[in-house]
Simulated scan of single mutants.
Amino acid sequence: MSQPRGPGYGSTMRHNDFGQPIGDAVPGWEGRASVIPTTLVGRHVRLEPLTAAHADLLYGPMVTASDPRNWTYYPYPPDMSRAAFEGFLVDQLNRPAAAPHAVLSPTGAGLGVASFLRNDPANGVVEVGGIVFSSALQRTTAATEALILMARHIFDDLGYRRYEWKCDSLNEPSRAAAARLGFTYEGRFRQAMVYSGRNRDTDWFSIIDSEWPTLAGAYDAWLAPENFAPDGAQRRSLGALIAQARGATAAG
């Protein structure tokens, strides 16, 4: 019995000279530049390359002024000292194939951190992760814009083919955020990690380059000033706009 083909393939099955099915051609692919920390600026938020000096801006908002539940799915205590927090930032800077960023308000106030991880430029693949947003940033337009800026950088600026999101399978806020942003759920890697003395099953999500134009249009529509009332309330949800854009793409 033949196995079902995965998403991302064309409608016509290709075969090699031995009659075996093979993947779609990727004409002219030569890999992409490595993802490095860079400054990304939106209307509501600014990302810049993370440094240890950002501890001055981030410790208060992320630790002392934030809900301790923000740290449940990370191997760091919610009541960490200033010195321990500096160690957390150094850990982000020392992760292999990573590009960590500080998330700041337009005026420079510290709001959180987020990173590009597991960069594989030869195949045009990178993960977004290491996301710790302060309570002041969570569930705000700025939080969503920060993640949109990162996705735009990967697809529009660098031309990558695949953008990944991974999280503890029990981290429902992270799972919900991935779904809200239009990532596709791909499956669960059981017993993928041990941290803080407990098991982690890891859920995988992705966006691929063929999906990006549809999602980018929905992101633009959601971020448009006219989508927000004077009190800042959204007129149309991001989920509704993504569903509409996907429906239009399928119909076309």
Rank of each mutant, 00 (worst) to 15 (best):
E48S: 13
T12D: 12
T51E: 07
G42V: 06
A240M: 06
S81C: 04
R95Y: 15
P100R: 08
R175G: 05
T64H: 12
Y160A: 00
R162N: 08
D203E: 07
D201S: 06
G182V: 00
I131L: 15
R82E: 06
R152I: 00
I208Y: 13
G247H: 07
V125Q: 14
F183W: 12
S2H: 03
S206G: 08
F189N: 02
A143T: 03
N227P: 01
A250M: 04
F205H: 10
Y195N: 03
R139C: 03
I242M: 04
R175A: 08
A25E: 09
A224V: 02
S206R: 09
W204F: 10
M1E: 11
G252P: 02
N123S: 07
A178H: 02
L89C: 02
L89N: 01
N199S: 11
A151M: 11
V90I: 09
G232Y: 11
G60E: 12
P225Q: 15
A240Y: 05
I207M: 12
Y76Q: 03
P106S: 06
T202R: 10
T72C: 05
N16E: 15
L215S: 01
G10V: 04
A224D: 14
P68D: 13
H153R: 12
G252S: 11
A98T: 05
P213F: 10
Y160V: 00
N119G: 14
V41P: 00
A251G: 02
G247R: 13
G6Q: 08
D91C: 05
A136L: 06
R152P: 00
R198C: 00
P100Y: 08
A245I: 03
E48F: 08
E86H: 09
A229L: 13
F133I: 02
A55K: 00
Y160R: 01
R139Y: 09
T144P: 04
A176I: 01
Q191R: 11
S237V: 07
R188G: 01
L241A: 06
A136E: 12
A25Y: 13
T184D: 10
D156T: 05
I22E: 11
P78H: 13
S210T: 14
D168I: 05
A146W: 05
A83W: 15
E172R: 13
A192L: 09
V132S: 04
W71V: 03
M13V: 10
G6I: 06
A99Q: 14
L104H: 06
A84L: 05
G10S: 06
Q92L: 15
D67H: 08
R118F: 10
R246S: 00
R69V: 11
H54L: 05
V26H: 09
G23A: 15
P61E: 13
I36V: 14
S135A: 14
W222A: 01
